[in-house]
Simulated scan of single mutants.
Amino acid sequence: MPAALILLNAIPMAFGAFRVAQLTGGAEVTPENARFFAAPLPVVLHIFSVSLYSVLGAFQFVPGFRRRRPGWHRAAGWLLIPCGLAAALSGLWMTLFYARPPGDGDLLSGLRLVFGSAMVASIVLGLAAIRRRDIARHRAWMMRGYAIGLGAGTQVLTNLPWLLIVGTPDETSRAVLVGAGWVINLAVAEWIIRKRLTQPVR
């Protein structure tokens, strides 16, 4: 499970590392990356926080690991909460204040605001649930937040076939393909949550 989740996010993390290398290595400023050079802090914060969130969070979903190392699970969880919030909030900031790149329209911006806000809400609700000792709701909300945070990995899978078969998508197609990544992840998360609810408690 952890290896599969980390692999799913490998390509976005590689692109993120490339972006950080551009910003720190004095790469040429182009129309495509000018917004990042004008305000580098949000994108760097987003890259580092979402990378740590996706890698460290992958190990939180292994039941045997949680049982054997409950202290690690709690310590990692307290680190994941600020990482997840930083990833979501920096993503929202970039959506609102960065200049839109070509191909990004109102629909895609709206989807980013909706899913980014949903990620923040999921993490906050998960934190509130564990403070009430409601483990089932804590796991469910944290799983939903993680599914949204891992959206970029699935978006590679939804966009790549279209690029290879059809070509560059227009604004509407791009929004649908990107949105599909979040929807697929949330659908899988909900399926796992519902499946666990139907299993007997041990």
Score class of each variant (00 low, 15 high):
Met1Ser: 09
Ala3Ser: 12
Leu7Tyr: 06
Asn9Val: 05
Ala14Phe: 12
Phe15Arg: 12
Gly16Asp: 07
Ala17Val: 13
Ala17Lys: 04
Val20Tyr: 06
Val20Ala: 07
Ala21Val: 04
Ala21Lys: 00
Leu23Trp: 03
Leu23Ile: 10
Gly26Lys: 03
Val29Arg: 12
Thr30His: 09
Pro31Trp: 07
Glu32Cys: 04
Asn33Ile: 11
Asn33Arg: 09
Ala38Phe: 02
Ala38Val: 02
Ala39Thr: 09
Pro40Ala: 08
Val43Phe: 07
Val44Pro: 01
Val44Glu: 05
Val44His: 05
Val44Phe: 01
Leu45Ala: 15
Leu45Thr: 06
Ser49Met: 08
Val50Asp: 07
Val50Leu: 10
Tyr53Ser: 02
Tyr53Trp: 13
Ser54Gly: 00
Gly57Asn: 10
Ala58Met: 08
Ala58Ser: 14
Gly64Phe: 05
Gly64Lys: 03
Arg69Asn: 09
Pro70Phe: 04
Gly71Gln: 11
Ala75Trp: 13
Ala76Cys: 10
Gly77Thr: 08
Leu80Cys: 12
Ile81Gln: 01
Cys83Trp: 12
Ala86His: 03
Ala88Ser: 13
Leu89Asn: 10
Ser90Phe: 01
Gly91Ile: 00
Met94Asn: 03
Met94Val: 08
Met94Tyr: 06
Tyr98Ile: 04
Ala99Asn: 00
Pro101Gly: 02
Gly103Ser: 02
Asp106Ala: 14
Leu108Phe: 06
Ser109Asn: 10
Arg112Lys: 10
Leu113Arg: 07
Val114Gly: 00
Ser117Thr: 15
Met119Tyr: 03
Val120Leu: 13
Ala121Gly: 13
Ser122Trp: 04
Val124His: 09
Leu125Ala: 15
Gly126Ala: 04
Ala128Asn: 08
Ala129Lys: 08
Ala129Arg: 03
Ile130Pro: 04
Ile130Trp: 06
Arg132Pro: 05
Asp134Lys: 00
Asp134Ile: 07
His138Val: 14
Trp141Asn: 14
Met143Pro: 01
Arg144His: 02
Arg144Val: 10
Arg144Lys: 13
Gly145Glu: 04
Gly145Asp: 09
Gly145Met: 02
Ala147Tyr: 03
Ile148Asp: 04
Ile148Ser: 09
Ala152Lys: 04
Gly153Glu: 02
Thr154Pro: 11
Gln155Leu: 08
Gln155Glu: 12
Gln155Ala: 07
Val156Cys: 04
Asn159Asp: 03
Asn159Cys: 09
Leu163Gly: 05
Leu163Val: 08
Val166Pro: 03
Thr168Leu: 15
Pro169Asp: 07
Pro169Lys: 11
Pro169Cys: 05
Glu171Lys: 12
Ser173Glu: 11
Arg174Phe: 14
Arg174Met: 09
Leu177Lys: 08
Gly179Glu: 01
Gly181Cys: 10
Gly181Met: 01
Trp182Glu: 11
Trp182Ser: 06
Ala187Tyr: 01
Ala189Lys: 01
Trp191Ala: 12
Ile192Gln: 13
Ile192Trp: 06
Arg194Tyr: 02
Lys195Met: 12
Lys195Gln: 12
Leu197Ile: 00
Thr198Gly: 07
Pro200Tyr: 00
Pro200Arg: 13
Val201Ile: 10
Arg202Val: 14
Arg202Lys: 10
Arg202Phe: 08
